[in-house]
Computed example of a mutant assay.
Amino acid sequence: MTDVLILGGTGWLSSRIARRMLVNGATVMCLARGGRPSPEGASLALADREDPTAYDAVSGRDWDHVIDISSTAAHVEAAVAVLGERAARWTYVSSMSVYSDDTAVGADETAAVHSPAEPGDEYEYGAQKVAAENAVRGLGERALIVRPGLIVGEGDPSDRFGYWAAAFARAVDGPVLLPRTEGRDVQVIDVDDLSEFVATTRAIGVVNAIGDRHPLAEVLATVRRSTGHRGDTVMVDDEWLIENGVEYWAGERSLPLWLPADMTGFMTRTNARYRAAGGTLRPLDETVAAVIADEQERGIDRDRRAGLTRAEELELLQRRG
Rank of each mutant, 00 (worst) to 15 (best):
A87W: 09
A87Q: 05
A88L: 15
A88M: 13
A88N: 10
A88D: 15
R89D: 12
R89V: 08
T91D: 01
T91R: 01
T91W: 03
Y92L: 08
Y92D: 00
Y92I: 03
V93K: 04
S94H: 08
S94P: 06
S94D: 01
S94F: 06
S94M: 05
S95Q: 04
M96F: 05
S97C: 12
S97N: 11
S97G: 07
V98L: 08
V98P: 02
Y99N: 02
Y99M: 04
S100R: 03
S100F: 00
D101N: 04
D101Q: 00
D102I: 06
D102C: 01
D102T: 08
D102S: 05
T103D: 00
T103N: 00
T103Y: 06
A104S: 07
A104M: 09
G106C: 13
G106M: 11
G106P: 04
G106I: 11
G106H: 14
A107W: 00
A107C: 03
A107P: 00
A107F: 10
A107R: 08
E109Y: 06
T110V: 03
T110W: 06
A111H: 02
A112R: 05
A112W: 03
A112M: 00
V113D: 00
H114E: 05
S115Q: 11
S115L: 12
S115T: 06
P116T: 06
P116R: 10
A117D: 00
A117Y: 06
P119L: 15
P119I: 15
P119G: 13
G120F: 06
D121W: 07
D121Y: 13
E122V: 15
E122F: 14
E124W: 14
Y125R: 07
G126I: 07
A127S: 14
A127T: 06
Q128H: 11
K129V: 00
K129W: 01
V130S: 08
V130T: 07
A131F: 10
A131Y: 05
A131W: 06
A132E: 04
A132Q: 05
A132D: 01
E133S: 05
E133L: 07
N134V: 10
V136K: 04
R137V: 07
R137K: 13
R137H: 13
G138N: 04
L139G: 15
L139W: 04
E141Q: 14
E141F: 08
E141H: 14
R142S: 12
R142Y: 13
A143S: 03
L144I: 02
I145W: 01
R147Y: 01
P148H: 09
P148L: 13
P148Q: 06
P148M: 12
G149M: 09
L150T: 04
L150S: 02
L150Y: 02
L150Q: 02
I151K: 00
V152H: 08
V152K: 03
G153C: 11
G153R: 10
E154M: 11
E154R: 15
E154W: 14
E154V: 11
D156C: 05
P157K: 14
S158K: 02
S158L: 09
D159R: 07
R160P: 09
F161N: 11
G162D: 08
G162K: 08
Y163V: 07
Y163G: 01
Y163H: 12
W164R: 09
W164E: 10
W164M: 14
W164L: 10
